[in-house]
């Protein structure tokens, strides 16, 4: 039953993805992407990752897509501003590359056993942990995919990347401030003071 669900969701997501990259109207593309991202959320639900599924819907389908919509609305691109349609030869080349990639991926993924939807990878992780003789976190005792499970992993095993993300966000904030700053502020001030134009 879960396999059927995954196939169905996969088909919807692939279709929505194709619509996303083929629409000329950016709003249509964004709406198709919304379907694709929601499908990913449902897929996570099927894999028993409730917390991740909720985050996927809230953050990607919710916040980020709203942001996309706002940007598109604020830019309000006209047909003439969107640039020419790419040459059809390029399109065929891109399609050929995509089909080749599809073939490689299908080949490399086809050999494996079907995914175990009930206990995704948990057994292997626990076994590896026991083999490595490290202290066992309580993560395996609580339900897989729950908020508690997620939180425990985030603040123990993934403490380093979690802390590093604070630096990443700080860098992003500083970057936005730098890039959004009005150019030539200092030069303008200097010009006013001396009365001369920039040489």
């Amino acid at each position: 039953m879960p396999a059927l669900l995954v196939l169905l969701l996969g088909a919807v997501m692939v279709f929505a993805g194709a619509v996303t990259v083929t629409r000329r109207n950016p709003i249509h593309a964004v709406l198709a992407m919304l379907v694709s991202l929601s499908g990913a959320g449902l897929l996570m639900l099927a894999l028993h990752s409730h917390f991740l599924a909720a985050m996927q819907i809230l953050l990607y389908a919710g916040a980020i897509m709203v942001l996309f919509t706002f940007v598109i609305m604020l830019l309000s691109l006209k047909e003439s501003e969107m640039g020419p349609e790419p040459a059809s030869r390029k399109k065929w080349l891109a399609a050929a590359a995509a089909i080749l990639l599809l073939y490689v991926l299908a080949y490399s993924l086809s050999a494996r056993e079907p995914v175990q939807f009930q206990q995704p990878f948990l057994d292997a992780e626990v076994a590896a942990r026991e083999a490595s003789d490290g202290p066992l976190p309580r993560a395996q005792q609580v339900g897989f995919g729950s908020t508690e499970h997620f939180g425990r992993f985030l603040y123990t095993d993934y403490a380093l990347p979690f802390e590093l993300i604070t630096v990443l966000v700080m860098a992003a904030v500083a970057a936005v401030i730098m890039l959004a700053r009005r150019p030539d502020r200092h030069s303008l001030e200097a010009t006013k003071l001396t009365g001369g134009g920039p040489a």
Partner: peptide, 13 residues
């Protein structure tokens, strides 16, 4: 020689 002319925001840099 003259006043500083730069558009680099050095704090952020």
């Amino acid at each position: 020689a003259g006043p500083v002319r730069t558009t680099l925001a050095h704090g952020e840099l």
